[in-house]
C-alpha cells in the first residue's frame, strides 16, 4: 500500500498532476522518472519524511513498494 503522502511527494518531485503508483510500479514506467530525476525523487522523500537513506539502501530500491517500506522502516512504522 502506497500512502498518499509518499505518492504526492513523488508526483511533486516529478511535476506530475497524477499517476497511478502501486507497490510494483518501477521508475521507468512513470513519466519524467528517469535516471537523472531519480536523485530529486529521493531527496524530496528524504526531506518530506525527515529521514536519511544510505547509499546502498537507495541502490537496492526496485520499485515504489520498496521505497514505501524503506520510509516506513525509518519512521518505525509497522
Amino acid at each position: 500500500m502506497i500512502t498518499n503522502e509518499l505518492k504526492q511527494t513523488i508526483l511533486g518531485a516529478l511535476k506530475l498532476d497524477d499517476w497511478n503508483l502501486t507497490e510494483q510500479t518501477t521508475a521507468p514506467e512513470v513519466p519524467g522518472w528517469d535516471s537523472l530525476n531519480h536523485v530529486n525523487v529521493i531527496l524530496a522523500v528524504e526531506q518530506k519524511f525527515a529521514v536519511r537513506f544510505k547509499n546502498l539502501e537507495i541502490l537496492k530500491l526496485k520499485n515504489v513498494g520498496d521505497l514505501q517500506r524503506l520510509v516506513d522502516a525509518k519512521l518505525g512504522r509497522p
Partner: peptide
C-alpha cells in the same frame, strides 16, 4: 554509471 547517477557521491 547507473549507480553513480543514483548516488553521485560514489
Amino acid at each position: 554509471p547507473f549507480e553513480w547517477v543514483q548516488v553521485p557521491s560514489l
